[in-house]
Design a protein around this nucleic acid. Sequence first.
DNA 1: CCGATAACTTGACTTAGTCAAGTAAATGAT
DNA 2: ATCATTTACTTGACTAAGTCAAGTTATCGG
Lengths: 316, 316
Amino acid sequence: MTIHRPPDKAAPSKDLVDAMRAFNRFYTRQIGLLDEGLLKSAFSLTEARVLYELAHRDGLTATDLGRDLGLDAGYLSRLLKKFERLHLISRAPLVSDARQASIALTPAGRNAFAPLDKDSHDQVAGLLDRLPASEQDRLVKSMRTVQRLLDDSAEPKVPYLLRPLQVGDIGWIIRRQGLLYAQDYGWDETYEALVAEILANFVKSFDPKWERGWIAEREGEVVGSVFVVRKSDQVAKLRLLYVEPSARGLGIGKRLVEECVGFARARGYKTLTLWTNDILTAARHIYQTAGFKLTGEEPHHSFGKDLVGQNWDLEL
Amino acid sequence: MTIHRPPDKAAPSKDLVDAMRAFNRFYTRQIGLLDEGLLKSAFSLTEARVLYELAHRDGLTATDLGRDLGLDAGYLSRLLKKFERLHLISRAPLVSDARQASIALTPAGRNAFAPLDKDSHDQVAGLLDRLPASEQDRLVKSMRTVQRLLDDSAEPKVPYLLRPLQVGDIGWIIRRQGLLYAQDYGWDETYEALVAEILANFVKSFDPKWERGWIAEREGEVVGSVFVVRKSDQVAKLRLLYVEPSARGLGIGKRLVEECVGFARARGYKTLTLWTNDILTAARHIYQTAGFKLTGEEPHHSFGKDLVGQNWDLEL
DNA sequence: CCGATAACTTGACTTAGTCAAGTAAATGAT
DNA sequence: ATCATTTACTTGACTAAGTCAAGTTATCGG
């Protein structure tokens, strides 16, 4: 029997699967503990979940609720009937489909939900409160990461945004470039050191009129960057273009290069030049598209490898 | 009415609480989906959870199970009786307490659990498999972070370990030092650049016989570092000692300095020197304890602040 | 216009879990 | 040593919570 998967794609390692299962068990218990606290109310857990959805989203139908909360249609039907009898919800038949109705909380429904909501809020706040503020941030950040990675539909609304450099950025770029090129091309630690040196000099001798750096950020994380430095009155140099593997295909690289070209043009430079290596084909493609021309190549030995360096120029 | 909390400690922000609640709802659903998949087996979800615990931990008593899984004692008692009737478990009364018994899966019990285990494993593997390997790592890492932060009892067994530099480390150190001193003392981006410059030079001119760097790692994360560089035949310099705020109080700083002193001594240096600033009191305390003597102070303006630099020497 | 499907609703049922009372052993304070 | 209290488990009585299947009405696709 053949296992049907692309040959280059291995099954997730047992360690990872086990860690995820351990987390699932842990969180099952965690949610169980939180739910216990809410059980004293007049509503069952499922009822509370339904109320929560209704309080936070408008125009839901019974089917929506059933799908999103994973409830049996029959069960839900009775549950909603009970809510209607208690005047907690109102149903407005859809004009587009007479079988369905848009369900909304009545003011009485909101009143009934408020203490539940508060209890749940306080309980979670109590959990968070045991941690120092920096750890609270880490916790919630990690939760967001888990959620985003598991939830296919949770693509960020803003694919990315560009912003200027902040403290901490250059360290991040140094680390990520060092790791990426070590992983993908086997470059040694001297490449990371080179990036560190370039960026240290960039910051030290930074001239805002003639130079600039851009950070591409997505969901609060750095996913790309690029720098323009002054070589002479006439010539600017584009340096250290990089895009996170997880953020490729969104046009971030192209956009970063466009920003550089626009900046260089606006400042009156005549030429924008850059140095790269022939193996970085994705980057080369971006440069070509932006109008850069290859002006020369030469082999060199750097970062523990034999490489071919390339110079590219764009006349502005 | 007064709120009883230290005045410097604010309640967790509503944003954080809401994000955590959103995650809880999301994960409730996530676990619900995973559980559905296992529902076709002969065992109920709770039965499966009990079997899982028994398969993975030895010497459990009924009370242990009830506590860890949050089960009613009566319910659990019947459940275990059923397992015993099916010869899935055996109970050995404890010699220390005749009321309790150590519960273990029989070989038949393991057989019954195996397909459950496999289904659960495969299902989780299927989820992971939809992500590229790097994202799988991020997911599991984030889960571990969430678990560790929420689980009081889950303190890491190894508080930390020391290791040599790897690719990616210097970028991380640059970032963290830049951020920390910006947060705590308002230093500007030139400090981050200085760290980058120091570390770039360290790597470029690294001489393994005379120089060394140490990384303190905990749970796979960098939590501290220090470097020794050669100034002359006689004099070595300790540089860039740092410990993550979250990892302070474990003696990591002290240990890092001790490593430096030991290394400097072993290599035959006569003096270990260092430069620091008077506001860094925690570090100063470590240096004093290690035997360093203050040899001079002088004010300087750096990193956007007026500071007082200090030189410390240790005669070896 | 008609067969298939979707959105509920209702009735009949089960299971998973709760609660309280009870027993035997262990613990702790005299 | 002893006796009240607590702990570990058991048992009986109960029900909330959820499932399943069949039915009704409306919509959809050809």
